[in-house]
Nucleic acid binder design. Structure first.
Lengths: 169, 169
DNA sequence: TGACCAATATTGGTGGCGCCAACATAGCAG
DNA sequence: CTGCTATGTTGGCGCCACCAATATTGGTCA
């Protein structure tokens, strides 16, 4: 019994440890995945906000694709990054406004835009890489090196389930 | 050189296998997590749509919390499920309209609403459980039983990093 | 007691991200 | 030439996380 409060028992709900997750939910893989995702996106949002000049995940993915594959059409960028064509358009417009990419019509295929990474874009990508690296280590902080490798391996299997199917066939 | 096209080499981009993820991105934990999340949410959305009567993740979490802890205030529901208070309000309104929960003012604490799971709500929860179970097995399909246990353990560690911190201290 | 502060429920709004539909245009295949 | 497909763009939707402001209520404390 606690001090100085006679009516304690009419409190049907105030278990000291509500705030836990319901049992039905807390061990479900989809729940754990969503929690891990929530945690990583929170860190990403913070990192992008404080060191990302207002850029976000879309922008990083596009810059990375351009750095790796060189000048690319928007449609191919979308396929390479898993970003919808329409969202590619919007993100590229923002990147172009910042001078991080260059966009012009492909003279040989006039319906295409050829998107090119500018030097400033490459710089931005390198900066973001640093930010992202820090975030990765923060996310994986609770794990040992061996556990990290394991997790990445396992995640790759379930994350790439459809794509592997596409690739293999 | 391919046939019938002299100007082929000004085509820097048409690798036959674009559609992969940039190397800079594809092994990052946050990326893999987001892919796993995308996969699981796609399955969840499909499952909820075809067998969920239009309910979504929020609703399931709330029903599960109510089933486990009994009548609960909205604020506590929010804390228990990680759903923002404002979103709790909206989701409960929908659940109430379907007769799955009952919401009335706590006579002892008039600023609180006591939310109660109705029998229909318990039924809906059980139905959703079945749907969710199927989705879990679909998500984990590429893994062996041992790998599944491992993945869940590792995810729990990184997913619960903050909460554990809260609990431990 | 009265003044002040904290918690609650609600309303309304933001933003990221994934996705889809419609459209005009351009290239390709028959 | 006639479809059919690919491309880029615009506009919209839905889910989820989050935040701000407000009215109400409870509890605290000087």
């Amino acid at each position: 019994m606690r001090p100085t409060m006679g009516t304690l028992d009419r409190m049907p709900v105030h278990h000291d440890r509500i705030g836990r997750t319901p049992d039905r939910v807390k061990d479900r893989p989809t729940w754990l995945i969503s929690r891990a995702y929530a945690r990583s996106t929170a860190l990403l949002a913070e990192g992008f906000e404080t060191h990302g000049d207002g850029l976000r995940g879309h922008h990083y993915r596009l810059l990375a694709a351009l750095e790796q594959w060189g000048p690319t059409s928007q449609a191919d960028l979308g396929r390479a990054t898993g970003i919808d064509r329409s969202d590619v358009t919007g993100a590229l417009t923002e990147l172009e406004a910042r001078g991080l990419v260059d966009r012009k019509v492909d003279p040989a295929h006039k319906r295409r835009n050829v998107v090119t990474l500018t030097p400033a874009g490459a710089d931005a990508l390198r900066r973001l890489d640093g930010v992202l690296d820090d975030i990765q280590t923060a996310v994986l902080a609770p794990l040992t090196a061996a556990q990290r490798r394991q997790l990445l391996d396992l995640l790759a299997r379930i994350a790439g389930a459809d794509r592997d199917a596409d690739v293999i066939e």
